[in-house]
Design a protein around this nucleic acid. Sequence first.
DNA 1: TTGAATTAAGCAAACGTTTGCGTGAATTTT
DNA 2: AAAATTCACGCAAACGTTTGCTTAATTCAA
Lengths: 347, 347
Amino acid sequence: MAGSRITIKDLAEKMNLSVSTISRALHDHPSIGKSTTDEVKKLAKELGYFPNSVASNLRRNKTHTIGVIVPRIDIHFHSHAISGIEDFAYKSGYNVTIFQSKDSLEREIAITEILQTKMVEGVIACLGLETTNCNHFTKFKELNVPLVFYDRVSKDFEASKVVIDDFEAAYKATAHLVSIGCKRISHIAGNQKTDIFKLRLEGYKAALNHYNIPVDENLIQYTSELSYEEGVICAKNILKLEVLPDGMFCANDYTAISAIQVFRKANLNIPNDIAIVGFSNYPISKVIEPTLTTIDDRAFEMGKATAKLLIRQIEDTDHIISSETIVLKTDLIIRDSTNLKSSGRIL
Amino acid sequence: MAGSRITIKDLAEKMNLSVSTISRALHDHPSIGKSTTDEVKKLAKELGYFPNSVASNLRRNKTHTIGVIVPRIDIHFHSHAISGIEDFAYKSGYNVTIFQSKDSLEREIAITEILQTKMVEGVIACLGLETTNCNHFTKFKELNVPLVFYDRVSKDFEASKVVIDDFEAAYKATAHLVSIGCKRISHIAGNQKTDIFKLRLEGYKAALNHYNIPVDENLIQYTSELSYEEGVICAKNILKLEVLPDGMFCANDYTAISAIQVFRKANLNIPNDIAIVGFSNYPISKVIEPTLTTIDDRAFEMGKATAKLLIRQIEDTDHIISSETIVLKTDLIIRDSTNLKSSGRIL
DNA sequence: TTGAATTAAGCAAACGTTTGCGTGAATTTT
DNA sequence: AAAATTCACGCAAACGTTTGCTTAATTCAA
């Protein structure tokens, strides 16, 4: 499509210089005279020359491009992570090419194959739900292209990772419920094929254990996608119990919100009858009524940290780093959904 | 970084064939014998050969890459639009490289310059808030690289565009308020430097005119970013009026929600005291209490339509299309925030 | 049994840069 | 004034593909 793009060759002909001289002049190479350098640049500007980075990439074996694979772009968490990735990458002179796996293993594999052909200098990935093994990522190791996973990572695959401490966050959330006096704490869990949701469940259980509260499987609802709709179903299931819980930790904010609403429609008071903690700090959480206590998952920060780590590995020429795992701190944001009124439950 | 990538040349040497034969065999060129074609492919697979698309791109003058410029990725609307873009592009064999302008004109310009060097085959852009003229996009025209704007477009710049009919949507939203009996309708407006927000204001005014309701500037609140926080301020300003409005059309959902909450805290009933319509159909809108009547802005569809139009133009070899504008229909989604109880206001 | 057509492959240029090496000329050193 | 150094630039290969043009061998038609 490049209509009649000006090339270095054109400049060379116009100036009766060799292409190598032009190239060097444009890069301020010291072996080119100051005056010619200036004239070359001047002419380049006049003619509207701009370099063809594809050619340059080929020759220099560098693309300054990183490939990003996410399940879906339109999920709040990922769009924020991607924003962090793009922002850091841009400032470091890298471009990001984005692919969504749509949680399909097949598509995820196809994407890795595309990335392989594109000479990307690094890859960032967040695993799809269907992904249980990471064999399709080994090619990047073989090719020496740095790879960093974020959020949904594989325990079994040795690679750099950036995660939040889901276990600790869930523990913290559950402990918070205990600390305000909850004795029967329910949990809406995510897909247990995904480590992060497994960890959230484990953190929940660990906190209960620590406070000598028996784990009651009846209080645990499992979902496959943690969708709002699934949350409604889970909450309704909870309502069917003979003895209701007095606290609830949900593996994301959507389910927490649906639970709030189902419970309120059943004339339960949040937090006094059931205190609720979500996970992710979605914008909605500070707007819902009551505002939702939740875990801030640091999506933007995570994206930024991921890009930073990746670029460090790309630019670490002596390949000393083999793999590195960064665990980001989370924050428990306490809001009204766990803010018991003094008139509330007796501790 | 490409450690020891297998190239066509390697295959050629191993098989005592020329590189051109290998290349043709890999592409099922008819002038290569069936048997050699098969053998070449077999060896390619064995050795783990995969093409270097950078080299191929350079030679063929095609990158199958489209560049996307958005203000921010982490805004719900854009993340959905990008999702639509990526999805359609992927299925059509294109990759997307994403940049966020952060609403900075300077950065937007810098991005267009980067894109120019990258041989992208097409560009999709949503203008940043600071962008008032589009001179930095003319280079794409000159280079014959197709360009499609979406959502925030420039009236003065001739190019393909995909938009929703903001005027009609705003008109529809306002008319809906009138239809349920509102007589004093307020508006929270967006940045008037941006066409879409101007159109929303105009649609609002047009509907009032049509129903012979005088436009009262006191009822119109202007914001610069339509943020939640600005919405709170606007709503509080409205509360200071001597005569309160009985309806309100907000240029986005965030401000609508903040208004709902401010009004409720002031002991006003939504919708009976003030009925409220938002804009964009953010996920939060169907979850807030009361659920919010709003305009569905078709973000995903818009992204998809944009990518479709762009790719059509890329592949339209005889460059017949000069520019095309697609206007997407919007839907008014009626929910509780305008669902007057029969016990409500007397019509 | 020729000549023509077909088949299967190779040669080499091209895409636009970058870069190691080479080379005269100008400048400096001794 | 000769030698050494520096300066400013050119030559040509290279990055990995693709592709127009040839070419040699085979097959076919008459």
